[in-house]
Simulated assay, not measured.
Amino acid sequence: MAGRTMKKILILILWLLIGVGIIIAYLTLGKPDTNIITQVRIPRLLLTLFTGMALAGIGSIYQLMLANPLAEPYILGISSGSAFGSILLGISGLIILMPVGGFIGAGFTMLLVWKLAHQKGRFDKSRLLIAGVIAGMFFSAGISLIMYLHQQDTALILGTLMGNLGHIFTKGEWTSFLILMGLSLIILIYLFFQSTAIDILSCGDLYAASLGINVLSLRRQIFILTSIVIGISVSYAGIIGFVGLIIPHIVRFFIPSGQKKIYLLSLWSGGIFLLACDLLAKHILSMELPVGIITAFIGCPFFMWLLLKKQG
């Protein structure tokens, strides 16, 4: 038992060191000059880390709170709703306000899914997932319609649909991004301090209520706050699926219980995983691929394995 614990600790330390190595490679690969590092690679590094952290951290919360290993922002339709709102403002020429559209879209989707998940005043976790899938399909259809009607904006729309971490920030956009990323980090920190309550909530609503937790208020609060973070993330990086699905499961292999530890390691692992995927997307072919393609190629087999495991 002690040997197995030590082995896991060594693997975690190795993973931390690998993460640092990936960050260094991300910044220095190809020996770029100082301007490229400061004006292109550091902004892209921060956007990628933030997006990976947000998706993985929120995925770990959803999976525990909903007691469903398949729950993540992409599956719940929040990403599609956020992308729809972001694209609407983008094609209107209000590119700097795309984060606002992303937030409104994510908030509206979460509100819709939340309402559909309640049946006769009771919250139904299964209905939530079904409602999320339906909402995601609806907003995906809306995005397809926009793409058909605004073919001149295909690049912007595809960048949102497939994930675009190569966002070129203007000075104003960079300032806005730093402010919104700071807000998101505050929310992610707040969610860390709710880890114990989320752990208790995963044991059942009646048990959580018996310990003095306002179940409805906590669940609503978490959905609202996570929708804000997802909305901001999607508006800058586009839809990047499966990060919130894969990473928490891998983390739980090493840390089976304790949401605080799982959440923290999910944040780190999500950021590093997305950095590695972005490096692969940039260098696997002579042309740069959208990072969402890489995460989908990795995530789809993982998703099917989870389905088969759940059925077994």
Rank of each mutant, 00 (worst) to 15 (best):
M110P: 11
L158D: 10
L156K: 08
K171E: 14
K115I: 09
L188M: 11
A141T: 03
D153I: 01
G105R: 04
L185C: 15
L180M: 12
F193A: 04
T175C: 00
T175E: 06
L206T: 09
G102Q: 01
L156V: 12
G182W: 09
A141Q: 03
S176N: 10
N164V: 03
L145G: 01
S144W: 06
G172K: 15
L158I: 08
H150F: 12
A135P: 13
I198A: 04
L94H: 14
V133Y: 04
L149T: 13
T170M: 06
M137F: 15
Y207W: 02
S195Y: 12
D124K: 14
L185D: 05
H150Y: 14
F192V: 03
G107E: 11
Q194N: 07
I179C: 02
I198W: 07
L97P: 10
M181V: 05
K120E: 10
D199S: 13
V133D: 01
A135Q: 04
I213F: 15
H150Q: 07
L211W: 09
A197D: 11
I104Y: 05
I198S: 03
K120P: 06
M147A: 15
L112Q: 00
L156T: 09
I200L: 15
G132C: 12
Y148D: 03
F103A: 07
V100W: 01
L112I: 15
N164F: 07
L111H: 04
S195A: 15
I168K: 13
L185G: 07
E173P: 14
L165R: 06
L129E: 01
G159V: 13
S144C: 06
G142E: 08
L178F: 11
E173R: 06
W114H: 14
L183K: 02
S195K: 09
K120L: 06
L185M: 15
A117D: 10
I130Y: 01
G136K: 02
I168Y: 14
L183R: 01
I179A: 05
F123E: 03
L116H: 01
I187M: 06
W174P: 06
G159C: 14
F108M: 14
L178I: 11
L116S: 06
D124P: 08
M110F: 08
G93I: 14
L206M: 08
L211K: 09
I186Q: 04
I187K: 02
G142Y: 12
I198Y: 05
Y190N: 04
G107R: 04
L129R: 00
F139L: 12
A141E: 01
I179N: 01
G212M: 13
L191N: 07
S202E: 09
F192G: 05
G121M: 11
F192Q: 05
L128M: 15
H150R: 09
F193L: 04
G107K: 05
S92Y: 04
L97Y: 14
V113T: 11
M147P: 01
N164D: 13
T109Y: 02
L183G: 02
D199M: 12
G212T: 08
M110L: 15
A131G: 12
L158Y: 12
G101C: 09
F103K: 01
G102T: 00
L161H: 03
L129D: 00
F169D: 00
P99T: 06
D205F: 01
F138A: 04
L156S: 07
G101A: 07
M162V: 00
L185T: 10
D153G: 01
L112N: 02
L158F: 15
A208Q: 02
I130N: 00
M181K: 08
I134V: 13
Y148W: 06
M162K: 03
A141F: 09
I157C: 07
